[in-house]
Design a protein around this nucleic acid. Structure first.
Length: 157
DNA sequence: GCCAACGTTGGC
DNA sequence: GCCAACGTTGGC
């Protein structure tokens, strides 16, 4: 059973184009329990992800990715050189996890204002005021609508 | 750069 | 376990 998600990245940190260059990447640096729990408990290989560019003008959905490896310890938490280092993480208790994702489809960028003006997306967590969760669930219906807005045919999903 | 909305920390 | 202080996110 495929589930659908949205993951945020700041384009100056790790843009969609870099994911395409890399072919796949480990989603390190998540330091929020709610987001961690989603990755750890709810994400499965094959799940599809809207790749969202935050902190840019305008914020937008850039593409569709797929989970290609389930949750495993985020090693950057135990790397003292990493900006994601967490002194409370240890081999016995890694504390944080990551998943691997790979790019699947390019989308024509779908901006946040566009998303907001599409009534069919009412209730989408991303559009809630004050939300800042970097890994969020997306309903299959909303996922499909966003893909269509980005120029992707329904039957590709 | 501002600031609202969170999440985390730590004293009590 | 409460909650004030503080730090972060991220749209605007």
């Amino acid at each position: 059973m495929t589930s659908y998600w949205l993951m945020k990245s700041e384009p100056h940190v790790y843009p969609w184009d870099q994911l395409k260059i890399d072919g796949r990447t480990h989603w390190d640096g998540v330091r929020n329990y709610q987001a961690r729990n989603i990755m750890r408990d709810d994400m499965s290989i094959g799940d599809l992800v809207l790749f969202y560019h935050s902190n840019c003008k305008p914020p937008h959905i850039a593409g569709v990715a797929r989970v290609c490896k389930g949750a495993y310890p985020d090693f950057t938490a135990q790397d003292t050189e990493s900006k994601y280092f967490d002194p409370k993480a240890s081999p016995e208790n890694p504390r944080w996890v990551m998943v691997d994702i790979e790019p699947v489809y390019d989308l024509n960028p779908v901006s946040l204002p566009e998303l907001r003006t599409n009534g069919a997306l009412e209730g989408m967590p991303l559009l809630r005021k004050g939300q800042r969760l970097s890994v969020q669930p997306v309903s299959k219906e909303h996922f499909s609508i966003v893909c269509n807005m980005g120029g992707l045919e329904n039957n590709l999903l």
